[in-house]
Each structure stands twice: as structure tokens, then as C-alpha cells.
Write a protein that binds this DNA or RNA. Structure first.
Lengths: 132, 132, 132, 132
DNA sequence: GTGGTCTAGACCACG
DNA sequence: GTGGTCTAGACCACC
């Protein structure tokens, strides 16, 4: 479920945050589902529990999960979370686009790329999710 | 010409690199134009000369400028530079798009945003370049 | 009567203590009334009996209840309990006030808020006790 | 300036956050003033640098300070910060008051306490800030 | 068993 | 020198 990429230059805890966020937004983690415990996940990924702890803490701060001493960490109600996530994605896109139009890149090239991205997604779906 | 923003979390040397790149891509710096000397620029921005040095070194490594001992640093031929810059922009866009399709955002919303970006650019052009 | 809120970050045993205290102070539990048995309450709330046990122990330590082996736990005389509760409330208020004067907040604003709180109480009373 | 109280049961990093917040709100730390460096303050308080780091990170997240690698941590512009702080204080007071009126404590007792708090403040001022 | 805090010490990137 | 990340290992409170 949760993986880390050592090639990725971003800190591990940030990768975990993104990963969990994604799983929540995609609905793989449902509200009140328990997350893997700090220690378990740390062992699984063979990293330090503190790093997981930090990721979970940030997720709690952002209101995506809640943790209870002695019981574990759980997914929060989501509705607004997903919407906010979408907004952020589009804001990022807008930023990238601003640079692109500033650089004078052809609109057709952009549209082609967008189509390609959506195309590849459909391909993956048809192949089935059995991979990994 | 070259400014730094201390509130910006990116390292200063990176801000300088980006700034110079932008000036080259936009054609403000023409091939074989001299860049400000390390010491001059350092004083102007009141930062450590090492920081400028590092930025120039990186720019040379990337092939955008060349340095001549005792004379200074100069802009290289720019054709390939611009092309590479475009490639990078598109790579960034692709990354943003990947997250977007993953989040299941509607294709129409994306296309609309793209159109909007190109639309606003044309508007700005017609208004004249006084903005920025 | 006694409920727990898993979203509440405070430990369960503490929530139970507070809840019982409140019921005593409010007069719902009269002196020598029996409290629900540890096992009953544990089942009712579907939590570990140890947790109830701990809450009752703490309540006994504070002198609010007394336990008789083989018979159960009972409410103690309440006069002093209420008084102590009042003291604690005022101590909390004093702490909040300390921060307020430190922050330099206007005295009038505070007095206004105090009046408002007492005002709203009278309102509620007159409306009847159906609330809560 | 910044002190920690080992009697206080709250975590050290939280005490530091509150302390810095207070100093900013009170205007002792002005915008763009540098905070003590992570290591310096850690030594001064003889605690681990990580603990300071954590406090500063949280303060940055809350928008009260900004940190730059290799340069240090600095106070942010404040206006809205102070206002928000005041609001929070009053919300806390309101919460304490709600419990007080619920417990049926006399209004006069409350007003007396409020007066006392403001009185003690004036006393301190007149004594002069030379203490400590 | 769970999460939360802290320490000691390391390494990196930056100026 | 600065801040940022991570590890290893400890202790606490809670269930």
C-alpha cells in the first residue's frame, strides 16, 4: 500500500504524507478505518518509527486522520478533504500553465500532453489493477 | 535585473540561477553578453560572493554560460537553452497532470483551465506589456 | 448517562471521571447512590473493564466515591465535592485571565463577555430546561 | 527571555511555542527580528536541538515565523497574528465561563476575580520591569 | 499492544 | 555558522 522511493529527493515523511493522502482521497482508506500502527509501518518500510510518527502527526494536523493514545490512528470524515485536494491540484496546474504560456509554448503541444495523460489512465484501467 | 527574495524558501543560489535562466530565455541576455561579475553582483545584493560563484558554476555546468579566467562570465549560444527550458516546463506540466488524473479530476475542467490560461495571455498582450 | 467520545483526545478514563463528577455536582447522583458496576459499564461502552476500574479508583482516591468489596461503588457525601469543583472552575478562569491581561486585552471586553455569559444563562432558564 | 518549566506537564516544545508566541504578540520580537538559533537556544536551555527545531517548525507552520536554511529563523509580519491570538484568548475565556455559569457560581465572585487580575497587572507595571 | 515526547548523535544543504 | 532530516533508543501514558 504505502511505499517510499529513495530516488525521490523529497523527505521520506513527506512521501508518506502524500501517499496516505492519496489513499484517502481515492477512497481506499474509508472514514474511521485504522491506519497501520506507527511501529508496524516502520518495520514494514524498514525505517525509523519517528519518521512515521512525524508523517501521521502532520496528517492529523491537516485534519485527515485522528490518533488516540493506546488505540491507534484512524481516518477522518473526508468530504471536504477531497474537494480541497482537487482545488490544490488545479492550483498547481495553473501555476505550471502560467510558466508555460510565459515561455510561449504552443497550445497544441499542451493539449496533446493533456490528452496523452488521460489516455494512459484509461489504458491502465483496462489492464486491470492486478499489477504490483 | 537580478533580485532575491528572502521570504522565498528556495536557496539564494537557486533563485539566481532561475533568474539568469529567465533573462536568457526571454532574450534580455544575448549570446556572448557579459554577466555581472561575481563580486559586483555580490555587493549589489549584499550577499556572500561564494553564493554567486556557486550559481555561476551551476549555470556553466548546465552549459548556459562560459567563464574566462580574469575576464568574467558570458552567455552561451541560446538555441538549445530555450528548447531545454520548454522541455522542463512540459515535464513539470506532465507531473502535475499525473496527480490530476490520479485524483480523478474531470478532463473538461482541465481543458477549460488551459484555455483560460492562454486566453488571459492574449488579453495581456493586447493591453500592452506594461504589466509585471 | 455516561458516554465517551473517541474523537476527544483526552484519555477515556479521564472522560469517565469528568462525566461522573459532573453527574455528582449536578445532583443526578445523590450521596450513597450506587454507580454502575465496572463490568456492566464496560460492556455498555464496549471498552476494557480496566479502564473503568482506573476511573473509579481515581474517583475514590479523590474522595468522591467509596467502594465496598463484593457490593460495588457508591457516591460519597457531596458538600465538599461541589465546593472543590467551584474552586477548580475559578482556578481555570484565573489561568485564562492571566493570559488575557498578559496579552493586553481590554478589561471592558472581558466584563462584557462575562455579562453576556450570565445573560445567556438566564435566558436558557426562562425558556425551560428542555435543552441538553 | 525564553524559559521552560519542568513542573509544567505540557511538552517542552509546546511551552517554547507559547513563549515565543507571547513574545511576538507582546511586541518584544519585532517583524524580521532573528530568533535565537536552534543550537544556541538548545544549549542555553540545556535541551536537545531537535526539541527547539520542532517548536520553530510549528511556529513556521502557523505563520508566525519563517526559517531559511543557512541563515536562521525570523519573525513574520504580525498584525493579523495578534488579532487572532486575542480572539483565541477570549474563546478560551468563554469556554471557562460556560462551565462556571453551568456550575452556578456567583457572578460577583467572577467579577471580583477579573478585577483582581487586572489589579495585579497594574501593580507589576508600577514596580517596573527590572525584575528577573 | 498503541501513540507521544525527548535525547543523542549523525548527515545534508546552504551561506 | 545556519536550518532540515533521519536514526536509534529510551520513557511515559493509555488500553
Amino acid at each position: 500500500m504505502i511505499v517510499i522511493d529513495y530516488k525521490d529527493r523529497r523527505p521520506i515523511y513527506e512521501q508518506i504524507i502524500d501517499r496516505v493522502k492519496m489513499l484517502i482521497v481515492k477512497g481506499v482508506y474509508q472514514p474511521d478505518d485504522p491506519l497501520p500502527s506507527v511501529r508496524t509501518l516502520a518495520m514494514e518500510l524498514s525505517i525509523n518509527p519517528n519518521t512515521i510518527q512525524r508523517a501521521y502527526q502532520e496528517l492529523e494536523r491537516q485534519g485527515l486522520i485522528y490518533s488516540v493514545k493506546g488505540r491507534g490512528s484512524f481516518v477522518n470524515g473526508t468530504e471536504s478533504v477531497i474537494e480541497e485536494h482537487h482545488k490544490k491540484m488545479l492550483a498547481d496546474l495553473k501555476e505550471a500553465m502560467a510558466k508555460i504560456v510565459e515561455a510561449g509554448i504552443d497550445k497544441q503541444a499542451v493539449l496533446k500532453l493533456v490528452e496523452a495523460c488521460y489516455g494512459s489512465m484509461e489504458l491502465k484501467k483496462n489492464e486491470g489493477g492486478a499489477s504490483e
